[in-house]
């Protein structure tokens, strides 16, 4: 769906046209945001919950959106924060807060009825789950979404250099995991 972002923002700020504009926003970004969240929380149902919360948050705060960054960046930032909060909450509840390996995410992956990949892809996903949250995020955004470093830097509010270093470390760890498993 081709939309002019600035037009969409002005319609979102207009109370009389907000509902229609928001419908367009959801339709335009739902898929990209879904996959971004799905790679973080792994499970489909959890992703659905998080994504609904993301749009709910956007709905409630869109009036105050100051357009310091693009709508796309703002949405990705909200989705990232919501997804990370969700898994941290899950870790806290299952007493896995200090477990960087995210055992509960691994069991979620193995039980995922919507996983359609082959064995090698399952191994890659397991390798990704061994990474710390930030490296996992960076790896997914770069490797699968092929996002530019400067876009990632804006979303994650960090430097391009730090992102490159994170990605490099992530790749090394994943290669090591694949070779040894």
């Amino acid at each position: 769906m081709d939309i002019d972002e600035s037009d969409l923002i002005s319609e979102l700020k207009d109370e009389t046209r907000r509902a229609m504009a928001f419908h367009i926003l959801v339709k335009s970004y739902q898929e990209r945001l879904y996959w971004h969240v799905r790679k973080i929380v792994v499970n489909h149902d959890d992703t659905d919950d998080v994504l609904q919360n993301v749009f709910l948050k956007v709905w409630k705060s869109v009036e105050n959106f100051r357009a310091d960054s693009s709508l796309f960046t703002w949405l990705y930032r909200i989705a990232t924060n919501e997804a990370l909060s969700f898994i941290n909450e899950r870790k806290r509840k299952s007493h896995h807060l200090l477990d960087e390996g995210s055992e509960f995410l691994l069991s979620t992956l193995e039980a995922d009825e919507y996983f359609e990949g082959d064995e090698a892809q399952m191994k890659l996903q397991k390798a990704i789950l061994t990474l710390p949250d930030k490296q996992r995020l960076v790896f997914n955004m770069k490797y699968f979404d092929e996002m530019k470093y400067h876009e990632m830097a804006e979303i994650l509010e960090t430097s391009v250099g730090a992102l490159k270093a994170s990605y490099h470390h992530a790749v090394k760890k994943i290669e090591a995991y694949i070779e040894h498993n």
């Binding site: 996959w35 790679k39 919507y114 082959d118 090698a120 892809q121 399952m122 191994k123």
Partner: peptide, 9 residues
């Protein structure tokens, strides 16, 4: 490894 999204909906 195939560089594609292995998850479905």
């Amino acid at each position: 490894i195939k560089r594609e999204n292995p998850f479905g909906v």
